[in-house]
Deep mutational scan, measured.
Amino acid sequence: KAKLLVLLYAFVATDADTICIGYHANNSTDTVDTILEKNVAVTHSVNLLEDSHNGKLCKLKGIAPLQLGKCNITGWLLGNPECDSLLPARSWSYIVETPNSENGACYPGDLIDYEELREQLSSVSSLERFEIFPKESSWPNHTFNGVTVSCSHRGKSSFYRNLLWLTKKGDSYPKLTNSYVNNKGKEVLVLWGVHHPSSSDEQQSLYSNGNAYVSVASSNYNRRFTPEIAARPKVRDQHGRMNYYWTLLEPGDTIIFEATGNLIAPWYAFALSRGFESGIITSNASMHECNTKCQTPQGAINSNLPFQNIHPVTIGECPKYVRSTKLRMVTGLRNIPSIQYRGLFGAIAGFIEGGWTGMIDGWYGYHHQNEQGSGYAADQKSTQNAINGITNKVNSVIEKMNTQFTAVGKEFNNLEKRMENLNKKVDDGFLDIWTYNAELLVLLENERTLDFHDLNVKNLYEKVKSQLKNNAKEIGNGCFEFYHKCDNECMESVRNGTYDYPKYSEESKLNR
């Protein structure tokens, strides 16, 4: 008799109507990190870190770059004969040098303040090359056809396309004075040089004057150069050297050249137009028929994500570079809930034993079982409120962090190594801060989002509990077992918050 009662009780308990509160689960393989956990499985997430590029040089917003090819900045601007293909260059979106560009200054020497000139050019998007001192009329008392084997072109001695090597005419090199007034309405880049012979005999042979000088002056520039005559090792078949100089001439300003020898005179100059998204990159990537809004030396990035880990040097509207390998923000729920887990921000989770793959029309909802059958029903209101809140948060985070910009490298010469090392340390410090901030932001927001979901499920549970009161009992896994019969209409009233407690209280009292 006792065995019969136990079996009867078990049958009745199993047959009781139930309603459970749960949440969506799926077959997603997404994982995120939080402050407290690593690799948390979630139903949905968004990636904030771009880690792919196309490996190509592309047009930037429809404008092609200027590819210097086998030449570098120095060779292009001075007019190395091997860089003749660059003479027609007028406009570009950015400038590309190759790491091993070999054609710079063909006659050995240095372009002074080269690093600063590169910085200036990094904001130039177009130029006009014009004859600042016409070759045939500007130097009537001097020979202007100086050439050298060091600047050979097609097997013949030649010289820079933008400079003139002035030497004596006959047996004399009379003092020369020439000036140019900038009437271009924009900055003009003027380049010139000073020749330093290897011996007094060479000085006399070329310029006749043993104590020659070169003077260059404008409103913002004033220097006097004296040739340094000295024996030097042979470089590119030359014992002599040429140093090259430049200045930016403001609109309306005048530049005056005065010399008694050794002047490498300007022939062509450049009127410059600035462009905020221009820059110089060093890259071996090849040019393709493609378009982008962000270019790196590795390749083009076409992404609206706020961060990238491809390269710190970028041109155009680019994500911020960070050292992170993963920045994924959760938008959905835990896919593998932890039992009795309390989140960092106070939300209680884990009283549900598992997510439901059968509930596909919402994030949170119900599963019921009664004599009429069983089924899932999503709670659309709480789901939609959660979707709206999380979507707004993700968009806000992306908008705040998605300050796209150009980031170019800084140039230092060989004598500025300590400054370069200090600059690298400062840049590394800023990069570490950006990386830390980005990672911390994602970790915190992921923790908040998961706790937010847990709290929403808990609130749904409490909503049902407050309606049923003692007409049902909690069975410990997020479910309630009714003390009365609850048909589909009754189940719907529980879900929509209109459950009639008094209607079922007498039946429940008897069954309790």
Rank of each mutant, 00 (worst) to 15 (best):
S122K: 09
H24S: 11
L7V: 08
A41R: 13
V32E: 01
L5R: 00
I229A: 09
W246E: 01
A231L: 14
L248K: 07
K234A: 13
G240T: 08
P140F: 01
R154V: 13
L87A: 09
G55E: 11
Y245S: 00
V235W: 01
S200I: 11
A13D: 03
G261Y: 01
L48A: 02
G240P: 05
H195K: 02
T18E: 11
T167Y: 14
L36G: 01
W92Q: 02
S123R: 13
E102N: 14
V42I: 14
A25D: 00
Y244V: 03
V147T: 15
C71S: 03
I281P: 00
L166H: 01
G279R: 07
E136S: 13
L8N: 08
V40C: 12
E202F: 02
V194T: 04
G275E: 12
G210W: 03
L57W: 13
S208E: 09
G22A: 08
S198P: 12
F270A: 04
P99N: 10
D201E: 15
R129S: 02
R90H: 14
K38I: 02
S179C: 05
E119H: 06
F130W: 11
N209G: 07
L111V: 11
S199C: 09
L127N: 00
F144I: 08
I264V: 15
Y268G: 00
T254C: 11
A13Y: 10
G170E: 08
T247R: 07
E102R: 07
K56N: 09
G55V: 04
V194M: 05
L164Q: 04
L164H: 09
R241M: 08
C71Q: 08
D113A: 15
V194Q: 01
Y180F: 15
D171K: 01
F159A: 10
K184I: 12
K61R: 12
E258L: 00
P108K: 05
K169I: 11
S157D: 01
F144G: 08
L191Q: 01
Y180I: 02
F130C: 06
A16H: 11
S85G: 10
G240L: 02
T34E: 04
T226C: 10
L189C: 04
A212Y: 02
Y23K: 10
Y245C: 07
R129N: 05
C151N: 04
Q238Y: 00
S158E: 15
H44C: 05
L60H: 01
C20H: 03
S91H: 14
S158R: 02
Q120W: 11
I19Q: 13
N26K: 13
R236T: 03
L5H: 14
G185Q: 05
L163V: 12
L117Y: 07
G261C: 10
L48Q: 12
T260W: 04
L68P: 02
K169S: 11
F270P: 00
Y213E: 15
D171C: 03
Q204E: 15
G240N: 12
A259T: 09
P140S: 13
E187S: 12
T282Q: 14
K234D: 06
I256N: 08
